[in-house]
């Protein structure tokens, strides 16, 4: 019989182990989410990330090794964005009909996200590169990183802030919108997509298909709008 270190060294070289671990951690996170009656605070992404981070830490596995397996899951982010076209296409008549409310909510939500983040951070003493890294945090990661580089931010820090924003949005959206007594699924989904990009959109799909469709739209539109306004707003806070 081959001993454990030998099996481990074989497995840790290929993508199989960490791909399986990623799916297993998410399955467990999702089971917890369902067991907790789909309470938003029991976020499956958060649970999976925490489990995997602990596993990597105790097995002294570098992130690069983990990512060799996890990249297959990560790659699907692109195709998933393309797939958002289907709910959008199904809902296109409703989107056309709601053009004005959508435009108003996009402008208001996007401006609020950038201005309030910069105002709060600056009031608490954040300046320079860190402030620039924060400006695009409500948009989807590839766009946010591009904006951050263009305005003198740190891409790594922006990536961290983008993910944290998404998880925050996914956790707070449902209780917050219930508290505000907003029942329109279009409004709920769209505002969540604008404020919390793909992670907010993923959450919206868990709640209601209409919310998911409008969240995907909000994410896409805000990627474009933030690229235009973030550099201008940042100037006001320099």
């Amino acid at each position: 019989m081959t001993d454990f270190p030998e099996i481990w060294s074989y497995l840790s070289r290929g993508p199989l182990l960490w791909l399986t671990a990623t799916l297993a951690a998410y399955t467990l996170g999702d089971a917890c989410f369902r067991a907790a009656n789909r309470a938003p605070i029991v976020n499956p992404v958060l649970i999976a990330v925490a489990l995997l981070a602990v596993m990597l830490h105790f097995s002294a596995t570098p992130y690069a090794t983990y990512f060799e397996g996890a990249q297959f899951v990560h790659f699907l982010l692109g195709p998933a964005t393309i797939c958002l076209a289907l709910p959008l296409s199904d809902n296109l008549p409703r989107v056309r009909k709601a053009a004005l409310p959508l435009l108003a909510a996009l402008l208001a939500g996007s401006l609020t996200a950038v201005v309030s983040a910069l105002a709060i951070a600056k009031a608490l003493g954040v300046t320079g590169e860190v402030l620039a890294s924060l400006a695009p945090k409500s948009t989807t990661a590839p766009v946010a990183i591009g904006i951050s580089q263009a305005i003198g931010g740190s891409p790594t820090l922006t990536a961290v802030l983008v993910i944290l924003t998404g998880i925050t949005g996914a956790v707070v959206a449902t209780p917050l919108l219930n508290l505000l007594r907003i029942k329109d699924w279009r409004a709920r989904g769209f505002a969540t997509g604008v404020a919390a990009h793909g992670i907010g959109t993923a959450r919206a799909f868990q709640v209601h298909p209409t919310a998911g469709a409008f969240a995907g739209l909000g994410m896409g539109l805000n990627a474009v709008l933030t690229a235009l306004i973030a550099p201008l707003i940042l100037e006001l806070f320099r």
């Binding site: 004005l100 409310p101 609020t112 309030s116 949005g169 279009r186 505002a191």
Partner: peptide
């Protein structure tokens, strides 16, 4: 050392952006 300030900015701005965005949608609708 700015983790606290950044956390406040992220939580505060995300709550505000969702609130303003959704309320604005409903108002204009």
């Amino acid at each position: 050392g700015q983790a606290g300030a950044l956390a406040a900015a992220i939580i505060g701005s995300t709550v505000l952006a969702i609130t303003v965005g959704a309320a604005c949608f409903v108002a204009v609708a």
